[in-house]
Simulated scan of single mutants.
Amino acid sequence: MNFGVVRDNLPYLLLGAWPDGPLGGAALTLVLSALSGLAAASVGLVLGIALALVRNRWLHAAVLAVLAFFRAIPVLLLIFWVYFLLPVAFGLDVPKLFTVVVALSLVGGAYLAHSVYSGIQSLAAGQWLAAAALGMTRWQVLRLVLLPQALPMMAPSFINQWVSLIKDTSLAYVIGVAELSFVATQVSNRVMVYPAEIFLAVALIYYLFCASLDLGSGWLSRRYAHIPQL
C-alpha cells in the first residue's frame, strides 16, 4: 500500500480549498457537527423540558408525536426535504450548510429530548412536592432544583449524540457540501488509484474525532456517577 497519496493530499483532506477557497474537509466536518450539536442540544433541552412541564395530555401527546416523527425519518430524507422541497413549495433559497445543520439538529434534538425528559423524571418525585410547598412554580422547580442535578447526568448522552452527528455529517455529501467524505471522493477520483489508502485515512480521521468525544463521555460518566439524588 502507498500512503504517499494521503500525505500529498492531506492539506486538502483536512481543510478543503481553504485559504484560497471555502473551508472544507475535516475542518468543515467539525464545524457542521459543532453547530448541529449546539442546535440539537438546544432543541432537545426545550422539548425535553416541555415534556416535563406540560400537563395537558393532548399537548403532551402532540409533543411526543413531533419527536416520534423526527426520530422515525432518515436524516438523508430530511436533508432532501429541506434542500429540494422548501424551494419548490415556498420559493426559498436554502443554503447547503444551513440545510445540513437544520436536518441534523432536528433529528438529534428529537433523541436528546427524551434523554432530557428521562433525566428529569429520574429524580425523586418528592422534590417537586417539597419545592411546591415552598411556593415555587413548576418552572422555578425545574430551573432551580431539578435541572442543576439532571444536566450533569445527561452530559454523556449529549456527547454521544455529538459522536453520531460527526458521522452523520457525511450525508451532506449528497447535496455537494465539501465535508470530509466529499473531498476524499474528489481526491480518489482525481488520482484514480489508491482509493483504499485514501478512505482508510478518512476512517482514521473519523475515528480520532469520535474516540476523543467518547473519552470525554466516559470521563463525565465517572465524574458524575457518585452524585446522589436528593
Results as ranks from 00 to 15, higher is better:
Leu104Pro: 03
Gly135Ala: 11
Asn9Ser: 14
Pro156Ser: 06
Leu38Ser: 01
Phe182Lys: 05
Ala26Glu: 12
Arg223Met: 01
Ile205Val: 15
Leu59Lys: 10
Ser42Lys: 00
Pro195Tyr: 00
Leu78Pro: 01
Tyr224Met: 01
Leu123Pro: 06
Gly16Leu: 12
Leu30Lys: 00
Glu179Asp: 10
Val101Glu: 05
Leu51Ser: 05
Ser105Asp: 10
Ala89Met: 10
Leu85Lys: 01
Leu14Gly: 09
Leu45Arg: 02
Ala211Met: 08
Thr29Arg: 02
Leu23Gly: 03
Val191Met: 04
Leu200Arg: 02
Gln140Asn: 03
Leu208Asn: 04
Val6Gln: 09
Val63Lys: 03
Asp20Asn: 13
Pro95Thr: 07
Ser36Pro: 03
Ala17Cys: 01
Leu171Pro: 09
Phe69Glu: 04
Gly126Gln: 10
Asn189Trp: 14
Ser188Ile: 05
Leu64Phe: 10
Tyr194His: 15
Ser170His: 08
Ala155His: 01
Ile79Trp: 07
Met192Val: 15
Phe69Met: 13
Phe3Pro: 07
Met136Glu: 06
Val163Phe: 11
Ala172Arg: 04
Pro22Arg: 06
Leu142Asp: 08
Leu230Glu: 10
Ser122Arg: 06
Gly37Ala: 14
Phe209Asn: 04
Ala113Trp: 13
Pro19Ala: 09
Leu51Met: 13
Phe90Asp: 01
Ala130Cys: 08
Val54Leu: 14
Val177Lys: 05
Pro228Val: 13
Leu204Tyr: 01
Val82Gln: 02
Gln149Val: 04
Val63Glu: 04
Val5Arg: 08
Ile166Asn: 07
Val6His: 01
Arg138Asp: 13
Asn189Tyr: 14
Leu134Gly: 09
Phe158Ile: 08
Leu67Asp: 09
Ala50Ser: 15
Ala172Tyr: 09
Leu112His: 05
Met153Glu: 03
Lys167Gln: 11
Leu10Asp: 06
Ser221Glu: 14
Val193Ile: 15
Gly16Val: 13
Ile198Arg: 08
Met136Trp: 02
Val5Cys: 07
Ala61His: 14
Asp93Gln: 14
Asn9Gln: 14
Leu47Pro: 12
Ile198Ala: 05
Met1Thr: 11
Pro11Trp: 12
Val63Met: 09
Leu220Arg: 00
Val141Ala: 12
Leu165Gly: 09
Tyr206Asn: 06
Val66Ser: 12
Pro156Gly: 08
Gly16Glu: 04
Met136Tyr: 03
Leu129Thr: 13
Ser115Arg: 05
Phe69Val: 15
Trp58Arg: 14
Val163Asp: 06
Ala27Gly: 05
Leu10Cys: 13
Leu77Asp: 03
Arg190Ile: 04
Val177Ala: 04
Ala225Leu: 04
Ala103Trp: 10
Ser42His: 00
Trp81Arg: 00
Gly108Lys: 07
Tyr12Glu: 00
Gln149Phe: 12
Ala196Tyr: 02
Val116Ile: 15
Ala68Ser: 15
Leu144Ile: 00
Ser212Asn: 00
Ser33Phe: 10
Ser170Thr: 12
Cys210Gly: 06
Leu85Asp: 03
Ser221Asp: 06
Cys210Ile: 12
Leu220His: 02
Leu86Asp: 07
His60Thr: 06
Val107Gly: 04
Val177Glu: 09
Glu179Cys: 10
Ala184Ile: 11
Leu123Tyr: 12
Ile49Ser: 13
